[in-house]
Design a binder for these strands. Structure first.
Lengths: 261, 261
DNA sequence: TTAGAACTGTTACTCGACATAACAAACACG
DNA sequence: CGTGTTTGTTATGTCGAGTAACAGTTCTAA
């Protein structure tokens, strides 16, 4: 971040000053305006000059807050990570822990809902890197992916703990997953790390995620527009139930409907 | 296309003249150069000036062949549609018709292979619309999607004809798909049109496609880089076998391995 | 209270890319 | 061989990113 107000200590004992609040508000407004433009134009692109115009400023003023387009883009990507993660976690946690099938369904539905509502931000984090953007060193590239997987993993882990996870309909045919999980200490900071799950379950998690992501991204990018809404809803819900079943999750208790937007 | 040589009749009786061949070759070189730049930079973006420089020309010369960036982009998109479709069809047709499970596996593997080899072109047709690009009127937006579905559908139709399609593990819970297929005449030029399939099978086709697309796009965009190659291969193949099974397709006969690239 | 520093905005400017205009050379074809 | 078409060039206009120099405002501390 550019021109950031230096932190006095490690934690700011003082509440944010008037200036700091104004600055934070401006930063937030810039990001919101950029997201509005993205939404309006249906792409992950935006012009600094447009943001400035909409905010009643001149373009160079924005450089007081973001060094360049990349830095703003990075901020938007980080926010998108957090928002998607929060949305999914919140949906999941509204279902009791003893209903892992329901929790998975909630995760899938909120994933889909978020992507439908914010296709551009979805593309930002789970699509091809945007033109001109180069991730900062060791940046959060594919961070969302790992985080999403980790969330999914915790869900399956709960099911194992509760003893309600049946054997998935997938097998580790060539033993490569078993081997990988056995040496998981080599791959830190990924879903491979963390609480242990059987190889078939790891495979099942990936299968669940890939299935829900496939439908979700096709739909978010408009490639299923030829299908009536109610058919899309029905197919998605049915698919989710199916992958949950083949993954060994128990049937969901109460399945919240995905409301239209 | 700009400055196109007018067709004398409906079909050119005369073999293409020297000039026409030179022009076609230049157009092809422009597209190849653009794709090379996209691949090199890992994005769907390119600069006219870069293309010209690599071709030993000046930028304005390119406008003799494409009116603007959009027109070149459109051509690249159309080509990508065709290439993916051809790759998938070719892979499928190397498996005998009486092995629909094998044919589906071949389709899935070639889909994945193509996306891995050409992630930018994959994003071009199955990702979010490219910044700045506006599809021509009634353009081929999501054409690939419909075509892919149609191919998948023909595959299932063959299985039905051969009488080897079992009942899928999916059900048309609320009847919306049944209703849609009953009035399919309303939705021309989509996979809904064409040879009839039971609603559960339609659902199963979408499920198959979404599953393979989900894994494929996550991988193509680098979101599965934290997984070792052999694990990715194993998980994909296993998932494909699973979705084929739950879709009612018989076990594949000989499953061709996906060679490393 | 007030001087100075920090912050936040402005206008003026450079640079690079898309795109068009005007022109020149090469080519096809009567 | 001469004329019109094609394909390239250079010169130019426009627009957006990003920088420089400067001005007004706000915070802070003597």
């Amino acid at each position: 971040m550019v021109g950031q107000i230096p932190q006095p200590g490690r934690e700011p004992e003082r509440p944010p000053s008037r200036r700091e609040r104004a600055r934070a508000a401006t930063i937030e407004e810039i990001k919101q305006t950029a997201m509005g433009l993205m939404r309006e134009q249906g792409t992950t692109d935006f012009r600094f000059s447009d943001i400035a115009r909409l905010m009643g400023m001149t373009a160079p003023a924005l450089y007081r807050y973001f060094a360049d387009r990349d830095e703003l883009l990075t901020a938007l990507i980080v926010d998108a990570y957090d928002d998607l993660g929060d949305a999914v976690a919140e949906a999941r946690d509204q279902i009791p822990v003893d209903d892992p099938g329901g929790r998975f369904a909630a995760v899938a539905q909120s994933y889909r809902r978020w992507a439908r509502e914010e296709p551009q931000r979805f593309a930002l984090i789970l699509g091809l890197p945007v033109p001109g953007y180069h991730a900062p060193e060791e940046g959060p590239t594919s961070e969302a992916a790992k985080r999403a997987m980790a969330q999914l993993k915790s869900l399956f882990y709960e099911a194992i703990q509760a003893g309600v996870l049946r054997r998935p309909m997938l097998t580790d045919d060539d033993g490569s997953i078993t081997r990988m999980l056995a040496e998981h200490h080599k791959v830190k900071d990924t879903p491979i790390d963390g609480p242990p799950v059987p190889p078939e379950t790891f495979q099942a998690m990936l299968h669940c995620w890939a299935s829900m992501h496939g439908f979700t991204s096709l739909e978010a990018y408009g490639h299923l527009d030829w299908l009536p809404d109610e058919v899309r809803d029905a197919v998605f819900e049915s698919s989710i139930r199916l992958v949950a079943r083949v993954a060994g999750l128990p049937e969901p208790g109460g399945l919240p409907r995905l409301s239209d937007d």
